[in-house]
């Protein structure tokens, strides 16, 4: 078992307490070690996706890159992002076990509505 799989196993083990379903944060975050409790597309995006794609959807570049979601023509194809979020693509993990179908639809909706605009120009 990997060093990190252990903690997942632990998390799974610790989960079985019934009252844990109660979200302790107002935005539904940190409610369970293996399912996301965020109730809205915005909360899901900002609490999960933003870790890589950044809060404003612009992505980030290091030794590799997280693609920008702003005005991304591929995201115009309605089911493209739903499929990726569900199944995983390359290094991006899939979320079919941690998000409900409803949550996935909501966050895809949030992404296409919110980021379908150009980034504000930064002052030159």
């Amino acid at each position: 078992m990997s060093a990190v799989k252990l903690a997942l196993k632990l998390a799974i083990a610790l989960l079985l307490t019934p009252t844990l379903a109660l979200a302790q944060q107002p935005d539904g975050s940190f409610s369970s070690p293996f399912r996301f409790g965020e109730p809205t597309g915005e909360a899901i995006y900002q609490n999960i996706c933003a870790g890589c794609h950044m809060p404003d959807g612009r992505g980030a570049t290091g030794a590799g890159a997280y693609p920008s979601l702003r005005q991304n023509p591929r995201l115009a194809a309605t089911d493209y992002d739903i499929a990726i979020i569900t199944r995983s693509q390359k290094a991006m993990p899939g979320f079919s076990r941690t998000l409900t179908e409803r949550q996935i639809a909501d966050v895809a909706d949030y992404i296409s509505k919110t980021f379908n605009t150009p980034l504000p120009e930064s002052p030159k």
Binding site: A7, A11, S29, F34, R35, Q46, T98
Partner: peptide
């Protein structure tokens, strides 16, 4: 802190 899974995503964001 040393979480994995959902908590690690949520911390990272």
């Amino acid at each position: 802190a040393y979480p994995f899974g959902p908590y690690a995503y949520e911390f990272t964001a």
